[in-house]
Design a protein around this nucleic acid. Structure first.
Lengths: 341, 341
DNA sequence: GTGAAAGCGCTAACAG
DNA sequence: CTGTTAGCGCTTTCAC
């Protein structure tokens, strides 16, 4: 089967290349009769115009890139990135963009990926997950005219666009919920403290304590990472400090921590109450269901794509900052049942 | 910042466009001194050649597509696809290919995606997950000269390339393991029976029974899907048939089924033994660890990319069929501890 | 309304 | 070794 081109279609339809192009792009000023004939030829030959040629002529690829860290721990077990990817992919589909996926596992990978994403002609725009790995990329891209949007508040950088949830406020709300429930010794296992999320959620925790006149006890704060296993270890470290309740920076972390609690012969929420973050659809495990901060992950991905497309279509806009809402989902792990409000 | 082109670099370096092209593509026959000068200009201008132009000239995009079904159940909770994607993405990185991700959620989506993946100039080749959704795409692509490789045995289609694990054999081995352990009433919860995996694993189950002179009891067989929830329901259906052991077509399904077992007041493996499939790194739940068939998922993805690239570079080869090995991982859920071999 | 022709940025013969 | 030239397949003025 010979690879068809516009010219071939034009010949078969007895018109010129330009006319075929007009038909394909739905432009006006083509006689209805001619249009129909061309359309017919296209249909019966199953012709699809060459993307590379079109990209070259239009200086537009209709392709978006998504750069994600590939940390062994998080990408394997935490459903966060799969869901985010799904939201982004769905939205790309919807808007007729193709999605390019770039998994960065190391600084080395980053080096390898950079030229591919920065190079013109491949991508119209980029979505970059904020974090330890992504942020170097962000700095380099900032000196480029490649439109990009950061997922999550970037660690630094002034004039860059990003989308995030208000982590400080959400964490604040989660901890205040525990305070209202009467807990006083409230601990936390933080996210990676080198990342904006980790910092922000910790800050929300601290602010809640301070604003409610509770002492900040360093022994009740353990820095963790978004991994079940590390959170399990962190909880063991936290146990001697005798927390009455714990705010974990992600649901996955809450699961790990609760595992440690159980193994120590204690009960959730009776001995230690829990609040998580994410509201991940998890395997139903035989425990009290998790009280948690719900993030609209899929919508987050969709919204990100929309903003990025806006950024691409209209370069004149200044940096965009979009904050999406979270919602505290109260279930049983916070011990609300046994408490009086 | 003006978008640089080869011509600009050529001018700055005082050579012709061709020479710059040669330097970039590492071709010989460029004087060392000239090469150095050009390289220097490229470095200081941070120049990257335009991908679209290069693709057009070379008729090659160095981009691979991955088509995955986006079934709500599986993509959300089962880590299978995230891991597969990771393997594929890693390998793409390694071989300097860009990965395009296409999530298909409906027949409608499929319709929308088809022109994008079939169109020349965007993709050099395609990886398509076999299953209910993917298979229509496969048929259409077969009439095309787009190289593609199916992940998992396609439901039908003769001359198409695919990579798979030997599901029949692996399931057979898992069930034989249970038989050797002395179980006689062995049930199964199958995968989607419209898909090749579902069929193959069920066949392995049946073959094991038959070859060992065990009766096939229809009440011990429940058709399921790769979802925790459906498997939970399936197990409830299976319970009255009093199985001594159950072979679940995936780990996720085993988790759901075991949940039903527990809720019925029974113990794993003492009352009902379990063998799963996948060897997913799961959240450690307080149960006996799962005996399961390990699939080399990441390697599977990597291998798939390699085969596809071979297919792309050398079109003359006939259809490839690659079967990867699985391994039975014996842990506690099969009740091996309490049994005498 | 429609066709001719130029050009998008790069590679690859083909001369020299 | 290096420059000139002719495409790759599409879009888009600009004539007619």
């Amino acid at each position: 089967m010979p690879e068809l081109t516009l010219e071939d279609i034009a010949q078969k339809a007895g018109v010129s290349r330009s006319t075929v192009s007009r038909v394909i792009n739905g432009q006006p000023y083509v006689r209805a009769e001619v249009r129909a004939r061309v359309l017919e030829v296209i249909r019966e030959t199953n012709f699809h115009p060459n993307v590379a040629a079109r990209s070259l002529a239009l200086q537009r690829s209709w392709m978006l890139g998504l750069v994600l860290p590939r940390t062994v721990s998080s990408l394997f077990t935490d459903p966060y990135f799969p869901r985010l990817t799904q939201g982004v992919a769905q939205a790309c589909n919807q808007h007729n963009f193709t999605l390019g996926l770039f998994l960065v596992g190391s600084a080395e990978d980053e080096e390898k990926i950079y030229p591919r994403v920065a190079r013109k002609g491949l991508l119209d725009g980029l979505l970059i997950q904020s974090g330890e790995l992504g942020d170097q990329l962000i700095d380099r891209l900032a000196n480029t005219n490649m439109p990009f949007l950061v997922l999550g508040r970037p660690f630094h950088g002034e004039n860059i666009s990003y989308i995030d949830v208000d982590n400080v406020d959400a964490a604040y709300g989660a901890v205040v919920h525990l305070i209202r429930l009467g807990y006083r010794r409230i601990g936390t296992i933080t996210g990676p403290i080198k990342s904006a999320v980790g910092i922000d959620r910790k800050e929300g925790y601290l602010r809640a304590l301070v604003e409610h006149g509770l002492p900040v006890d360093e022994s009740l704060i353990v820095d963790g990472s978004f991994s079940e296993a590390e959170s399990y270890a962190a909880m063991q470290q936290l146990l001697p400090a005798r927390p009455e309740a714990v705010f974990a920076a992600s649901d996955m972390m809450a699961v790990g921590a609760m595992r440690a609690v159980r193994e120590a012969g204690l009960e959730v929420p009776d001995d230690i109450a829990f609040v998580g973050f994410d509201d991940m659809p998890m395997i139903p495990v035989p425990e009290p269901r998790l009280t948690t901060v719900r993030q609209p992950i899929i919508k987050f991905g969709e919204k990100a794509v929309e903003i990025l497309i806006d950024l691409i279509e209209d370069r004149t806009r200044g940096p965009q900052r979009v904050i999406m809402n979270t919602e505290l989902i109260v279930r049983e792990s916070c011990g609300i049942r046994g408490r009086n409000l």
